[in-house]
C-alpha cells in the first residue's frame, strides 16, 4: 500500500519534468497539425466571414487535372522536383569530395580550411540570396565582370534558362555544402584503419580503396545525407523567392512559393493547406522510399 503510493507520487513528480515541453509540443506542433487538416477540409478564405466545410473538395480539385489549382500544384511540384534533382547529387558528391580533400591535407592546416568551407552555413538565406543577386547581376555583377576580362560576353544569370537554375543551385551549394562535408568527415574518420592497412598489403590503389572500402563503410551516412539533402531541397523557398522571383516567367516558381502565394496573395487558405499537406506527404513518402531502397537487409542504420 505504502509502496504503491510512493510510486504513484514518484511517477507524478517525474511526469512534471515532461509537462513544459509537452505543453509546447501540443500547442505549437500537434494542434497545428490537426488544425491544418481541419482548414484543408474547408473553403477557407482569409477575407470571408464564412468558411463552409467542403470535405475533400480542395484535394479533389488538386487532382482534377486541368483546373487552375491542379496546374498551380503540379507545376510548382515539378519545379521543386527539378531543383531536388539538380541539387541533391551535387550536394552529396561535392560534400564527400570536400571531406576527402580535407582529410588528405596535412593536419595543421586542415582545421583552417574546414572552417572556411563551413562559414557560409552560418549565414541566413536572405543574406546569401541578396549577395548572389549582386554577384550575378548581369551588368555590374562580379562574375560577369570577371568573365568579360576573360573575353566571355555577359550572361543573364538570373533571367534566362538554364542560368536561373544554375544560379539557384550554385548559391545553395555554396551556402549549405559545409554541413554535408562535416558529416562526411566524421564518417570517414570512423572507417577502421585496419581495413586500409589490409588492402595496402594486397597492393590496392587509392581508387580501389575508395570503391571497395570507403564507400561501403560510409553507406549508412551517405543515406542520411541523401535524405536530409532531399528534404532541405524540397523546402527550397528563399533562394528563388529573392534571386529570381520565380522567373524567368514562372520557371523557377517552386511549390512552396505557390503555396505561400495561394495563402497570402489569393487568400485561399483552405486550398493552400491542402497543397501544403500533400507536399509534406510527398516528402515523407520520398524519404521512406530512399530509406527502403538504400538500407541493406542486415539493417546497418546505426
Amino acid at each position: 500500500m505504502y509502496n504503491q503510493k510512493t510510486t504513484l507520487k514518484s511517477k507524478f513528480t517525474s511526469f512534471l519534468f515532461v509537462v513544459p515541453y509537452l505543453f509546447l509540443f501540443i500547442s505549437f506542433l500537434f494542434f497545428p497539425l490537426l488544425y491544418g487538416i481541419y482548414i484543408s477540409f474547408h473553403d477557407y478564405n482569409l477575407l470571408s466571414q464564412e468558411n463552409p466545410f467542403i470535405g475533400l473538395e480542395n484535394y479533389m480539385e488538386i487532382f482534377s487535372f486541368g483546373s487552375s489549382l491542379s496546374d498551380l500544384f503540379f507545376e510548382g511540384l515539378w519545379k521543386t522536383i527539378q531543383f531536388v534533382i539538380y541539387s541533391v547529387p551535387l550536394l552529396v558528391i561535392i560534400g564527400l569530395g570536400l571531406a576527402l580533400l580535407l582529410n588528405s591535407l596535412p593536419g595543421k592546416i586542415r582545421g583552417l580550411f574546414r572552417t572556411i568551407y563551413f562559414i557560409p552555413y552560418a549565414i541566413s538565406v536572405s543574406v546569401i540570396s541578396i549577395l548572389f543577386l549582386w554577384i550575378l547581376d548581369t551588368n555590374s555583377g562580379l562574375l560577369n565582370n570577371f568573365l568579360m576580362k576573360l573575353g566571355i560576353s555577359p550572361i543573364a544569370w538570373l533571367t534566362e534558362l538554364p542560368y536561373a537554375w544554375i544560379s539557384i543551385v550554385g548559391a545553395t551549394i555554396w551556402w549549405t555544402i559545409g554541413f554535408n562535408m562535416i558529416i562526411f568527415i566524421n564518417a570517414l574518420n570512423e572507417v577502421p584503419e585496419e581495413l586500409y592497412e589490409a588492402s595496402s598489403i594486397d597492393g590496392a590503389g587509392a581508387w580501389s580503396n575508395f570503391i571497395h572500402i570507403t564507400l561501403p563503410s560510409i553507406r549508412p551516412i551517405m543515406l542520411f545525407v541523401v535524405i536530409t539533402s532531399t528534404i532541405a531541397s524540397f523546402n527550397v523557398y528563399g533562394q528563388p523567392y529573392l534571386m529570381t522571383r520565380g522567373g524567368p516567367g514562372d520557371s523557377t516558381e517552386v511549390l512552396l512559393m505557390s503555396i505561400v502565394d495561394q495563402a497570402f496573395n489569393q487568400r485561399e487558405l483552405g486550398s493552400a493547406s491542402a497543397m501544403a499537406i500533400l507536399m509534406a506527404l510527398i516528402m515523407i513518402v520520398v524519404s521512406i522510399i530512399q530509406f527502403k531502397i538504400s538500407s541493406p537487409k542486415k539493417q546497418g542504420g546505426n
Binding site: F25, L29, F30, I39, F234, A272, I277, M279, I284
Partner: peptide
C-alpha cells in the same frame, strides 16, 4: 516521429492560430 514532419505542414495553421 514528429522529426519527420516538415515545417510546410504547420506554418499555415500556426499563422491562423
Amino acid at each position: 516521429s514528429t522529426l519527420m514532419i516538415p515545417f510546410v505542414i504547420t506554418f499555415l495553421p500556426l499563422y491562423m492560430q
